[in-house]
Amino acid sequence: MSEASASSATTSATVLEQADAERKQARRESWRLLRRRPGFIIGMVIVVFWLVCAILEKRITPYDPFTYTTKAKLAPSADHWFGTDKIGRDIFSRVLAGARDVLVVAPPAAVLGVSLGTFVGMTMGYFRGRVDLVLSRIVEAFLALPVVLVGLLVLSLAGTSSVLAAITFDSRKVLVIYVVALLFTPIVARTVRAAVIAERDLDYVTSARLRGESATFIMTREVLPNIAAPIVVELTVRIGYAIFTVSTLSFLGVGVQRPSPDWGLAISEGRDVLQAGIWWPVTFPALAIATLVIGVNLVADSIQAVYER
């Protein structure tokens, strides 16, 4: 018996080495598959471009985005590629600089929203029963409301109370992050709930309960790592939505305030001259939003496709 098991151990060792190598190869394979997708490459190029703009801001803009440098409402030309706006600021510079506002607000909002949603979703999925019943109804009630309308309402009603000032560090951007995150929470919670329900009936969870683990331990240490993939996918998708939502709120005038070069705000400001045939103050920021959202979604789609392979 012992002889038999000894030879069994050596054979299985080689088998395992092979398995280990194959696992590493599989990980490389995922990355290779990702790189092979044209969508992923294009999406990454777009996202990285806007990230660079956001980080370097004034250092790469040809003009100062905040001061009017020349005559107002100049059409696109060699000097001003995207023209100038109605108070004479260079639109090209403002579009590049505007990436910072949206990228400072949207990704943190998505991260916060996914975190909150994960917490709520895990609570619903793990405990089921009455907890799930009550939370699910609340989540559904929120899902029935249009995201932008609620955001508009909350942001325009948000006064200047000291409590609010304290939790937002007196920053409008932080307030927008909170609002967008809260708006995303119910959607994420539903996705996470479904993933947790699929996991919680697996035997490893029963086994953890049978050694007396607490619910918190089981949820955070046992279940969470196993539902990481759908959460990461959800996060990338939410970033795309967050960019769109943040820009919409700025456009409606309840997000980032003047004189920020934020794209939504710029579209809103350029809107009144559009009818006079001055199309450039609206078009270029709009294209910027479109490219960033498309870029993020291309990356998200590729990640999702590779994860769900």
């Binding site: 035997d203 490893y204 086994s207 049978l210 050694r211 046992e222 790592p225 196993n226 990481a228």
Partner: peptide, 23 residues
């Protein structure tokens, strides 16, 4: 009690779902 929990354990049919895949 901890002693009672310790006294009784289980081996499941399917080791794939019985072991946490990420541990």
């Amino acid at each position: 009690s901890t002693d009672d929990i310790r006294a009784m354990q289980i081996i499941f049919q399917n080791p794939d779902s019985a072991l946490n895949a990420s541990w």
